[in-house]
Nucleic acid binder design. Sequence first.
DNA 1: TAGATTGTTAATCGATTAACAATC
DNA 2: TAGATTGTTAATCGATTAACAATC
Lengths: 215, 215
Amino acid sequence: MAANKKISSAVIRRLPRYYRYLSDLLNMDITRISSKELSKRMGITASQIRQDLNCFGGFGQQGYGYNVEFLYKEIGNILGVNDRFTTIIIGVGNMGHALAHYGNFRKRGFDTIGLFDVNPDIIGQEINGIKVMHTDELESFVQKNHVDIAILTVPYEQTPEVAEKVARLGIKGLWNFSPMDLRLPYDVVIENVHLSDSLMVLGYRTKEKFGKSRK
Amino acid sequence: MAANKKISSAVIRRLPRYYRYLSDLLNMDITRISSKELSKRMGITASQIRQDLNCFGGFGQQGYGYNVEFLYKEIGNILGVNDRFTTIIIGVGNMGHALAHYGNFRKRGFDTIGLFDVNPDIIGQEINGIKVMHTDELESFVQKNHVDIAILTVPYEQTPEVAEKVARLGIKGLWNFSPMDLRLPYDVVIENVHLSDSLMVLGYRTKEKFGKSRK
DNA sequence: TAGATTGTTAATCGATTAACAATC
DNA sequence: TAGATTGTTAATCGATTAACAATC
């Protein structure tokens, strides 16, 4: 039976990964799995799997392992898949556009309910049944609709300003795609997606492993 | 003077972040910075900064700190910004499209030299001066052009197959946007960008911190 | 029951932080 | 020179792994 110690960031970041693997197992009609077998599939230790899961509860059974469907649902609940988070996308450029089209988020518990931009060419366009509104309408929209998470895909220079505005309106989660670390004087959870950082790490590792000769 | 011990993943992942902050300092015409001052800006300890940098060399000077421009260039070199990595994008859907347009990669050392898709409506389109080719032309393209990194933005089901093809052609770096962990029987460096995972972590943290009442 | 596998405690490993001598 | 700040070693902290009693 799990205690409620502070759960570390490392553990939390592994949860979506467990969720994906369990989803795959379900699709393969596998009904039970041991930490040992799962460890082989995921490339992590069985010990870590059991430790991680026991942060949240005893989901397994001695001598049996874990019931895949049960564990899948439990992790889904921990992650809030059934809580349904409402999201808005601010900045419907190429990246915002791509995210608006990405169907996978819905399966994971996120419903996009608003799109915002300042470009008149884009405003009024409909994506996945949602009309792009002018960012000026953001405030009244947020007053009428509960918004959990704002996805920020605005140009670099505008990011701090828009982020502050969003935080001031009381939105509690912020998914930031700009290559800057936001720090806000508001009580907001921020998750950064620094794509260039990720690419640079890949470049470094490729170079480190295979060298880099050509210009 | 740094030894050449194995540099940990944690350190490497911080390099692009240092690079960004140094770039900002340069833009603010700040010529020197101490680890203490940088630590305040970045929200990490000065000790960590000095430890990290000393994995690669003694870039500072006692009593002075670090020369911003020099350090910026050194980290740039470590990351390979001047080595110029060539990249191709496979799958020019919404995400591939967004990445093809994203100018930031060039500044960080990456040149997109090829775009590939199988959709006849997309093939022949030009993005940033590059024509989208059919994926069938991939092999001959890679034989004629040195490609360091393949960016995979193909649909979920096709990802393993395309990844394998790319690896077989000798491409050494693979940036994967599909929500699956690729494992290949080839010597390839893989960096995953699991956007839904990141969003789920944000959802979890928002819920954890502020609760989640509404459906 | 015997075998398997969990939940959990203890041991290990690695990363972060603190401290300080070296030195600009 | 005196003050500041690095580079680096040592101490601490936290995360991962190992071990095993509990138990299905």
